[in-house]
Design a protein around this nucleic acid. Structure first.
Length: 469
RNA sequence: GGCGACAUGGCCAAGCGGUAAGGCGAGGGUCUGCAAAACCCUUAUCCCCGGUUCGAUUCCGGGUGUCGCCUCCA
């Protein structure tokens, strides 16, 4: 069993990872709040989780991967203020929260599929687990970590001395740092809602021991991870922005119930930047996969782009960069697919090279998911003149990379002649005749004309090939 | 104000004590009527100043700059 090293936010170190139960990994990923389309920034994090899961499986481990769908309780502010995001969006669109959640859940998985993000083993919706959450809140209160106010049930962070361990925040300093006082009846500034009492007109609400209401945002992850993975599982993943509040709160809640930190390893993906700065709604630079597609970039080019940088470093998205990634991915596929078609048998030299490359690849991904290095190995493999041996090797690598290297579109896909518009076909024919007559000036001008129409013509030994630009 | 991160060639980025992976782009060449494709070659001393060390991009200290979270957001 090869050694796997992962950076654990909890200890701020790279540690060797071994599942608590030999051979079986239990992993939880904070899923989307389904009130909007997920952006490419969101997906950077999900690509990271996916690569993690694939890496574990590549190492021969079986992975139970749980992902939540937040369809209730995530307020407009993470700090328990404002409206419920899903409910607010529903009001805007004049739909029910359930319709909104369903729509954006499907949109999320459609995009995730396009990115070759494997479906989690278990996908769980918050609204399907209200009783689990209520039970957990009851337990927290019974254990003395919660208290009731007119607003709802709060978690009392002062009862959990370890609060802040994950993010390294110091509560006292935070408070001294003077966040403007919020009008609330909570005891400590960092206390957060476990359960919120709902006014009559609130659409999504459930019966509870504290009257009608709905769950706080953080409790769903604690309740559902516990339900499916137990009191303490192996890995918890999410975006880096979740460290200070969401994951801190999750840890506190779970601790209040089980006396354990719910996950042994906490892994966080860094942000995607746009033009060197943040991507935000207010700056109007939030891009979706569809926005990339509209400019001709395939979803997997974005995946390749993400893999080109380490998950714990900020990745700067620019149109130049994604263009480079698209070209790179197509080029890699072209290289691989061409090599794979070559004839011949596998030589001993090739076999040895394959073993070397495989080892280098494994070492890279097992070193805290060093995908940039792994990609460099793939390029080396593609250029190593391995002949037919390359096929199995690349298929093997692609189990982790998920880039459709053997099957995806390579450079300059040829256009089927029969599907060309008549006008284009006529010009091609005219050009072929001009060439036969060695009328190069005419041939060149026709090629230019075709280019303007969106078709690139290249001459090959006994004819020409047409590709769409 | 609190917390955290980063600064590597035109761009996206690995490496993190022994004089810099990879991709994109660019330049040159082979091939081609020309072009394209393909192939070959070329393309950085790592923000600045100190220190530790035989030796630092890599460690420490100090600058400068950028970015993120604490409010929308992965």
């Amino acid at each position: 069993m090869p050694e796997i090293y992962l950076y654990n936010t909890l200890t701020r170190k790279k540690e060797e990872f071994k599942p608590a139960i030999p051979g079986e990994v239990r992993m939880y990923t904070c899923g989307p709040t389904v009130y909007l389309y997920a952006s490419i920034g969101n997906f950077k994090t999900y690509v990271f989780s996916d690569v993690l899961r694939r890496t574990l499986e590549y190492n021969g481990l079986s992975v139970t991967h749980v992902m939540n769908i937040t369809d209730v309780g995530h307020l407009v502010s993470d700090a328990d203020e404002g409206e419920d995001k899903v409910v607010a969006e529903a009001a805007r669109q004049n739909k029910t929260p359930w319709e909104i959640a369903e729509f954006y859940t499907q949109a999320f998985f459609r995009d995730a599929d396009r990115l070759n993000i494997l479906r989690p083993t278990i996908i769980c919706k918050a609204t399907d687990h209200i009783p689990h959450m209520i039970r957990m809140v009851e337990e927290i209160v019974a254990n003395g970590y919660g208290y009731e106010t007119d607003e709802g049930i709060y978690f009392d962070v002062s009862k959990y001395p370890e609060y802040g361990r994950l993010s390294g925040i110091n509560l006292e300093k935070q408070m001294a740092g003077a966040r403007v006082e919020v009008k609330t009846d909570k005891r400590n500034a960092a206390d957060f809602l476990l359960w919120r009492k709902a006014p009559k007109e609130h659409i999504m609400q459930w019966e509870s021991p504290w009257g009608m209401g709905y769950p706080g945002w953080h409790i769903e992850c604690s309740a559902m991870s516990r339900e499916y993975l137990g009191d303490q599982f192996d890995i918890h993943t999410g975006g880096i922005d979740h460290i200070p509040i969401h994951h801190e709160n999750e840890i506190a809640q779970s601790w209040a119930c089980s006396g354990q930190i719910p996950a042994r390893f906490w892994l966080h993906g860094e942000f995607l930047l746009v033009d060197g700065g943040k991507m935000s709604k207010s700056l109007n630079n939030v891009y979706l996969l569809d926005d990339l597609a509209a400019r001709g970039y395939e979803p997997l080019a974005f995946r390749y782009f993400c893999l080109g940088a380490h998950y714990r470093t900020k990745l700067n998205f620019t149109w130049d960069a994604i263009a480079g990634a698209q070209t790179g991915l197509r080029g890699l596929r072209a290289q691989v697919q061409r090599a794979v078609q070559s004839q011949g048998s596998v030589s001993e030299v090739a076999e040895q090279k394959v073993a070397e490359l495989k080892a280098a690849f494994l070492e890279a991904i097992n070193d805290d998911l060093n995908t940039p290095r792994a990609l460099a190995v793939v390029w080396e493999a593609a250029k190593s003149d391995l002949g037919p041996a390359l096929r199995d090797l690349v298929a093997d690598f692609d189990r982790v990379l998920g880039l459709d290297l053997l099957t995806g579109q390579a450079k300059d896909e040829q256009v089927d002649e029969s599907e060309l518009p008549a006008e284009v076909a006529a010009l091609l024919k005219e050009r072929a005749e001009a060439r036969k007559a060695k009328d190069w000036a005419k041939a060149d001008s026709l090629r230019e004309k075709l280019r303007e129409m969106g078709y690139a013509v290249k001459d090959v030994k006994d004819g020409y090939e047409v590709t769409k630009i």
